[in-house]
């Protein structure tokens, strides 16, 4: 179509490659070190925290161009082209358990997120109330 459009496409290739490299790095974090914390020793006791985590990421890009009708005979080739991209991601982590190592032995103590359970319970109760009301109607 035009040199400029080709240039735009060629220039966007390194950006796409770096985006793909960034996505690749997301999968490199699947190591147990990411889930288990460094041991903390206090006296005879050593504590390790185990957490659950999730991460998600996405990118998108595109470009395009076109040739329009000439406004007058002097304009040789009115063209338009453009490109763009965007991305987003997020991570969440939540402690699941604590591993306590003492001279007497090793024990795993669960960490209970009461707030999360309460929020789920209230949401579920609300949904149940609505479902029961619909059933009665």
């Amino acid at each position: 179509m035009s040199e400029n459009y080709n240039k735009l496409l060629v220039e966007s290739v390194p950006d796409q490659q770096s985006a793909n490299e960034l996505i690749g790095k997301l999968f490199d974090v699947t190591r147990p070190d990411a889930v288990f914390s460094q041991p903390v020793t206090v006296g005879d006791h050593t504590i390790i925290t185990a957490s659950e985590y999730s991460a998600g990421m996405g990118v998108g890009y595109g470009g395009g161009g076109g040739v329009g009708p000439a406004a007058n005979e002097e304009a040789s080739e009115p063209i338009g082209y453009g490109g763009g991209g965007g991305g987003g991601g997020g991570t969440t982590a939540r402690p699941v358990a604590t591993i306590i190592i003492s001279p007497s032995g090793v024990r795993v103590e669960p960490i209970v997120d009461v707030t999360k359970i309460a929020i789920t319970m209230f949401t579920a109760l609300g949904a149940m109330a609505m479902a029961l009301r619909k059933m009665k109607a």
């Binding site: 999968f27 288990f36 185990a50 985590y53 998600g56 699941v96 795993v108």
Partner: peptide, 23 residues
């Protein structure tokens, strides 16, 4: 430490969920 990871890959993104399973 032992953990389990669920990896979902898309051409333009991905998702990772990892949880501790045992010690």
């Amino acid at each position: 430490p032992e953990s389990q990871a669920l990896i979902i890959k898309f051409p333009f993104g991905g998702f990772v969920w990892q949880r501790p399973t045992a010690v």
